[in-house]
């Protein structure tokens, strides 16, 4: 199981929970599971998100492995200048 931290405005789609658990071994599995378990999240996930695993931010890396017990956060898709 992966414990995923959500940014504040997403908690309205998880009944207020700031962290949710899903079964996933990589980022893609995690995003699919989140979309299934919390349909309200799906449009946000589809629009693109970044994922932080143990402090490292991944912007496009479906098959990045999520180690057991890793700290995982969903973040808005980032862009720079």
């Amino acid at each position: 199981m992966v414990k995923v931290g959500l940014w504040g405005s997403l908690t309205s789609y998880t009944g207020g929970a700031t962290h949710v658990e899903v079964a996933a071994g990589n980022i893609r599995e995690m995003l699919l599971a989140l979309g299934q378990n919390y349909p309200g999240l799906k449009p946000h996930l589809d629009r693109g998100v970044a994922v932080s695993i143990n402090g490292q931010i991944y912007r496009d890396a479906w098959f990045q492995k999520i180690p057991e017990g890793a700290e995982v956060f969903l973040l808005p898709k980032l862009a720079g200048g």
Binding site: W7, S52, G55, Q56, E71, F73, L75
Partner: peptide
Amino acid sequence: GTKSSYGPTFG
């Protein structure tokens, strides 16, 4: 090791 204000822990 600081938990950042936006979630992740800094390295």
